[in-house]
Structure formats: structure tokens, C-alpha cells
């Protein structure tokens, strides 16, 4: 195709323009996080040197170290548990035929469209009744369930596409359905599993509403909740707040940069329901 020089310039100018728009708020937070604490400037100007001390302060004085511990714990448990349970369920939905399997799968699908707002009220009263509010369980159990809805949907597509001849060969070699799954399908399905894991990780790490409703004691706050509370109490402590925001966003952003395609693929799949 013939493209003129001006076409080329205009095209890249447009792309760069929108790229800058996407980056400005992010750069604002970064520059504020590295600014000196005396500065009242909410970013967008180059800081006078890199003040790493803001991060140390956020970690200690802002208790972000504690919040990060809560977040890591909740996220790891949710990701591992939901990945295991949804792989098992999706394996059955994708490779086995049993009465009611289609209907059961649709139940999981509907779970994918239910917003948290339609569940959070009874969840709160149920978990309070069980004495579980303000424990990690109140964050882990509901989020595992939500991730299972996505994971089952996502992994079923993989199992449907997995080669039947491979499964049959395994079975002829005397593998039970259990060993076929773990020895054959899971190792081959690593790309699909990675996508499921990063998406679940991101959702769990960024979750705010559930933490806001369930958690009361400071030591169990996750990082997003910790950030919002910190903002409520020290809204003038701008550079500390920005450093905290960086700590909230950084783990997900790092994984995103490394596995960008997985994120995009997984997040866009959410709308492609059959």
C-alpha cells in the first residue's frame, strides 16, 4: 500500500498524542512520589532529585509494609486455590460428558456477569454471622469464588481445544483421568494457565469494595484499602501518598510489562461469551 510521508507523520503524531495522554496521570504520580516532602506540588514537574526516602516512609510510617503483607497473602491464596479448582472443573466441562454438564456450565457463566454489588450485602451478614468478617477468610473465600467463574470459563476453552488424540493416547497408555490431567494436559496448557493466573492476580490485588466492607482492623487492610484510608487521614502528605500509590500499582504493572499479551488476551476474553 502506498502511504505518503505526511500520512506517516500524521499517523505517528496521533499515536504519540494518545500515548502521552495515557501516560500523564501515571507520570504525575511517579514524579510526586520522588519529589521532596516539603513540595506541595502534585506532580507534573520534574522533582528536584530522586527522594527514595518517600518509599521508606510510606513503608514504615504509612504502614504500607503491613498492607503489602496482607495483599500478598490474600492474593497468593486466591490465585492458587481458584486456579486449582477451576482447572479441575474446566477439565470435566471440556473433556467429559455427564448429564447436566451444559446447564452447570451456564450457571458458572452467569456468575461471570454478576456484579459484586449484587452479592456484597448478604456476604457481609453471612460472614459476620460465621465470625469471619475482619479475617483474611472474608477476602479470600468470595474472591476465590469470583475467580473460579472466570477460570472455569477460560480453562474450558483450552480443554475443548486440546487435542483429543493426546488424551486418547494417554488413556491407552493406562493413564487415569487424573493422571491424564496432571501429566499431559496441564503441562501442555501452561500458556492458558498463565493467562488465568495473571488475570486473577490483577483482580485480587486491585480489589477494593470487598476489603472496604469486610476489613476493620488496620493490620488486615490490603494495599488499595490502605491507600484510601491513608489518603483520608493525610491528604496533605502528597509525596508519601504518591509513593504509596506506586507501591499499590507496581506489582501488577511489572507483571503486566512482562506478560503484556496475556493480560490483553485474558481481559478481552471477558466479553466473548458464547
Amino acid at each position: 500500500m502506498i502511504t505518503s510521508r505526511t500520512d506517516r507523520v500524521v499517523t505517528y503524531a496521533i499515536l504519540v498524542f494518545f500515548t502521552v495522554i495515557a501516560l500523564v496521570p501515571v507520570l504525575g504520580i511517579l514524579s510526586t512520589a520522588f519529589a521532596s516532602q516539603a513540595s506541595l506540588n502534585t506532580g507534573f514537574s520534574l522533582p528536584d532529585g530522586l527522594h527514595w526516602s518517600n518509599f521508606v516512609d510510606a513503608w514504615q510510617r504509612g504502614h504500607f509494609g503491613t498492607y503489602l503483607r496482607s495483599s500478598v497473602l490474600v492474593t497468593v491464596v486466591v490465585v492458587v486455590a481458584s486456579a486449582a479448582l477451576s482447572t479441575l472443573a474446566a477439565y470435566a466441562f471440556g473433556t467429559m460428558r455427564f448429564p447436566g454438564s451444559t446447564m452447570l456450565f451456564y450457571v458458572f457463566l452467569i456468575g461471570l456477569t454478576l456484579p459484586e454489588e449484587a452479592l456484597v450485602i448478604p456476604l457481609y451478614y453471612d460472614l459476620r454471622g460465621a465470625g469471619l468478617t475482619d479475617t483474611y477468610w472474608a477476602l479470600i473465600l468470595p474472591q476465590t469464588a469470583q475467580s473460579i467463574a472466570f477460570g472455569t470459563f477460560w480453562m474450558r476453552t483450552y480443554f475443548l481445544g486440546a487435542s483429543r488424540s493426546m488424551v486418547e493416547a494417554a488413556r491407552i497408555d493406562g493413564c487415569s483421568s487424573w493422571t491424564t490431567l496432571w501429566r499431559v494436559l496441564v503441562p501442555v496448557g501452561r500458556p492458558a494457565i498463565t493467562t488465568m493466573v495473571v488475570i486473577t492476580f490483577m483482580w485480587t490485588w486491585n480489589e477494593f469494595l470487598l476489603a472496604l466492607v469486610m476489613v476493620t482492623s488496620e493490620s488486615r487492610r490490603t494495599v488499595p484499602l490502605g491507600l484510601v484510608f491513608f489518603q483520608g487521614q493525610h491528604s496533605s502528605d502528597i509525596s508519601l501518598l504518591a509513593a504509596g500509590a506506586v507501591l499499590v500499582a507496581l506489582p501488577v504493572v511489572l507483571v503486566y510489562i512482562a506478560l503484556q499479551r496475556k493480560f490483553i488476551e485474558g481481559m478481552l476474553s471477558g466479553a466473548v461469551k458464547e
Partner: peptide, 28 residues
């Protein structure tokens, strides 16, 4: 071809899903 064993594979996921999504939804 596996048969009822399919239910066993679905069961753990279904239990968690029911308890923390389906039940709260109907309670809502």
C-alpha cells in the same frame, strides 16, 4: 470415556462458587 467422575471434578469449584456467589445472589 469417563462418566460420573466428571461430577467429582466439578464439585469443589461448584461448592465454593455456590456458597459465595449463588447463595448470596439469591439472598440479595
Amino acid at each position: 470415556e469417563p462418566r460420573a467422575v466428571g461430577y467429582l471434578y466439578v464439585l469443589p469449584a461448584l461448592a465454593v462458587f455456590s456458597l459465595f456467589i449463588l447463595v448470596p445472589f439469591f439472598q440479595s
